[in-house]
Amino acid sequence: MSDVVMHVWRGDADGGQFEEYTVPKQDGEVVLDVIHRIQATEAPDLACRWNCKAGKCGSCSAEINGKPRLMCMTRIDTLPEGETITVTPMRAFPIIRDLVTDVSFNYEQARKVPAFNPPPRPEGGYRMSQVDVERGQEFRKCIECFMCQDVCHVIRDHEENKARYSGPRFFIRYAELEMHPLDTNDRRDLVREEMGLGMCNITKCCTEVCPEHIKITDNAIIPLKERVVDADYDPIAWLGRKILRRTKRTAEQAAVQPD
């Protein structure tokens, strides 16, 4: 069988370059297998993240031929045959070393999400219908590979936006909580004012790279935008809020973490 030629970006925050590696092709291999073979033979210090090697943990995100992919789910035989394969780290995040990036931006965003806040559990447990939980379940399939964050042009080429933009991964988190049958927090103002929902102009790049095929734009971001707009501009909703007691907590209240 022929060889696989791979150009892997090697370096750190101070800069780096592509190194070329040639390894014999093996049946059914994925990009991560080739990286592992390079580590075990030529370059034991080649840095990459991985855990499950089955597309379930979202650790091994990288850009393969310029496109964000999970290395463990990208079979070599699906890439153009005979052509060099280029593997680079995710571009939207600072480099730690080689293919490993500093994804702490995402963990900081996670800390800003007001916690799930259900009513007290009734005797015999909560009751929810399957159809209601399925909406949230779609978003909870997220494996936090952060490729949607990587590809999102609001932050990919605009470091300055990171301070006020939580990104697609967290828009689906907010959507999931908004749609959770039991949640009582209202995060709509927070999402609009602090998390930069308005900066997303629905180009669907995030949806295209999602390895879990979550319809990020259609099922989370657009409905979330609609809800936010409704909350602000819908005169009937406005009147309703004046007359009826709000059942959800406001953004300010929701932003305070419960004990």
Binding site: P118, G125, Y126, S129, Q130, V133, R140, H180
Partner: peptide, 20 residues
């Protein structure tokens, strides 16, 4: 398991809305 649900887990449901 019930506690996980109070913390936000969304398990599949039975027809009458309990955890399947």
């Amino acid at each position: 398991v019930q506690e996980l649900e109070a913390w936000g887990a969304l398990f599949d449901r039975t027809k009458d809305g309990k955890i399947l």
